[in-house]
Each structure stands twice: as C-alpha cells, then as structure tokens.
Design a protein around this nucleic acid. Structure first.
Lengths: 183, 183
DNA sequence: TTAATCATGTAACACGTTACATGATTGC
DNA sequence: GCAATCATGTAACGTGTTACATGATTAA
C-alpha cells in the first residue's frame, strides 16, 4: 500500500525521497503515517520492480539529490492497483483495546483516561484543519481539477471521523460522570 | 497490544488458544482482528515473560487442550498497561489511499469503486450488530457489571463509525453522480 | 463421504517502528 | 556556537499475514 502511495505521488511529478516524506507528512499522514526509513526502503523495491528510476543530481554545497521518476511500467501498475477491487478491513485501535478492559481499573482512572484522550484529540483536530488548508492550496496550483475532488473526499473523511470520535469521547465521559453521582 | 488483549481476556478466566481466537472473532474483531498463528505465537511470549502459565489437559478422543491462566505477575502487568497513558495514533486506511489517487482512473471507475464499497459496508453493518448481541448476551452472565459498560462503549464506537462511514460513502457517491450530469 | 468444528502449531515473508549514522548549509 | 533544515540511508527488532501441516469427531 505504501508502495502504491509513493507510486501515485511520483505520477504527479518527479520527487526525491525527502520530498515524498514531506508530502506524506503534509497530506497523507492522517490516513497513512510513513517513516523516512520505510520510504527509502520502498524506493529500493520500486526501482527493482522497474516501476521507478532514480538519478543522482549534483547540487552546489548540499549532498546529491536522488530524484525518482515513474516509468511506463510504473504507470501501468498504478492503473492496475486502482482498478483492483478494494476491501475495507477493520483497523486496529489501541484505544478501543484499552477501553474494552477499562473495567479492571479503579473508577477515577477510567474518567481520567477519556478526559486525557479528549484533550489530545482537540489538538489533533487543529492539525487536521491544516491538512485541509494544504490540500486547498495545492488545488490552486494543479491544472487538472479532477484529482482535487478526491483529495477533498479524504480530507472530508478526516473531518467526519474527527467529529464522530469527539462525540464518542463525550458520550463516554458523560456516561461515567452520571454513574459517579448515583451510588 | 495483542499481547495485552490476550492478557485481559485471561484475566476473566482460563482459556485455550482456540477459545481466545473465538473470543477475538466474536467481540474484539471489529477493532482488533487477530490470526490464530499470531495468538499462538503471543502465548509463547506471554509464558516466557511469566505473565501466564499453560497446562495440558487430556480429553477423551480429542487432542489435548493447552489451558492458559494468568499469573499474579500477569495481573500486575495488565494493571500497569491500563494505567499507562494512551496516545491515539492515526490508523492506516487502504480505502483512503485509493480514494486519494482515484483521479487517475476513468470517471466510471471511481463511481463503481464507491458503490462497491457501499455494498460491502452494508453487509459489514449487519455483522456489527451481531457483535453487539454477543456482548449483550455476555452481560447477563458476568456478575460484575462494571466491565460491560466499557464493552458497550466499544460496540457503540463501532456503530458510530459504521454510520459515519456510510454517510461519507453516500456523500462521495452523490458528489460523483451530480458531477456526471453537468458537463 | 464430505465438510465443519475442535485443537494444535511452524515457517516464511511482508510491513512498520526505533535507533543510529553522516554531513553541509542557513539563520539566530 | 547551536539548532534547524536539507538529504541520504542502514540495522535490528516487532508485529501482522499467508500458507502449510496434522488429526480426531460429528452432523449433513
């Protein structure tokens, strides 16, 4: 998957590993976090498969850049992957795992747990907004307006998820608070 | 995480690897799918760490069972893990990854993509209901009503997520359909 | 008699995380 | 002089996935 994500980005234009990482951090991060080390490893594989080519570009002062470009084979593979039917699989949630077993913790512990998550989440919602901004800015630059519709769909998912999660946290906190009052 | 999930289940009572797998499939599956092979591997680790003990139990006809029980050390570790602060991390979504690059596919392809996901998701929503039923049935059996509140919270998350996801799919389909009509 | 369920696992591989390593440039 | 940014990666480890292997019982 990360493999194809990188391929998709290179389809928009040539990039270095460093730039790919940046793009991931700025836009894909909220649904696909990627470490630098992982990206460089994947680039090796992509090249081996003949989906990309890499060329060192000398720079004055700075170390050489290693610019990646997609090949015809790579574009073909991207098409194949996109056309392949997708199956939505359950995502692992460490938060729900802990929630499930929260009954083993003293009562105050569980309230703290959710309150802390709520605080964290509010911060996260702000960074989500930044991702949206990033996509909007990109939209102005890209001539082909077709892709941006889909970029916005992913950003929209992020918003909806964020709202849903906040509401869930609030409902949990409310449940625990009203429990506390009654004996 | 799976490690601690298993520990949490064994804290409710002794189980075999097979029963652990069943429980995962019936209740934890929607937020933490676990393969049989992975469970058996983790059980070895759990035993090495001294958090569980395993004893072979002979059965007439069937092969021996390997019953696992949590140790005092295991209970301590469970407490430690629960009390440890949680951080909600982004979950990887293959669906959003594909959505992001959908612009590279012909128009009809993207509509099919979302319509197919919608169909799949409707089936999934039904199995989610079953998970809820399973938890309710369990609730009747367990004397300590404290845990069941948290079990329901996780099931509630599943419901909210399922609804949100359906609404998102519908909004994507609507966007693409209205696009098609206009030139 | 064939498939499903009970019951155990191993092995190889794929993917993700954490830590480490190097080195120049630019702005404070 | 120090931290941040640009730019590259390697190595070890942890976790998840897929495929394989075995063998008895029971219900259709």
């Amino acid at each position: 998957m990360l493999r194809h994500g990188i391929l998709g980005l290179l389809n928009y234009g040539d990039m270095t590993g460093y730039e790919i990482r940046e793009t991931f951090q700025n836009s894909l991060n909220f649904f696909w976090p990627a470490q630098t080390s992982q990206i460089y490893r994947e680039l090796v594989v992509l090249e081996e498969k003949g989906w990309i080519e890499r060329h060192a570009v000398a720079q004055s002062g700075k170390p050489d850049k290693n610019v990646c470009s997609i090949t015809a084979q790579g574009r073909q593979e991207l098409q194949r992957w996109l056309a392949e039917p997708a199956h939505s699989s359950a995502t692992r949630s460490p938060i729900l795992m802990k929630t499930f077993f929260m009954g083993e913790l003293p009562e105050t512990g569980s309230l703290d747990f959710f309150r802390q998550l709520r605080q964290q989440h509010c911060l996260y919602l702000e960074t989500l907004g930044q991702t949206g901004d990033f996509i909007s800015r990109y939209q102005a630059q890209v001539p082909d307006g077709k892709s941006t519709l889909f970029w916005q769909m992913t950003a929209d998912f992020g918003q909806r998820y964020g709202q849903m999660y906040l509401q869930w946290l609030d409902s949990c906190i409310h449940l625990l608070e009203t429990r506390e009052e009654e004996p």
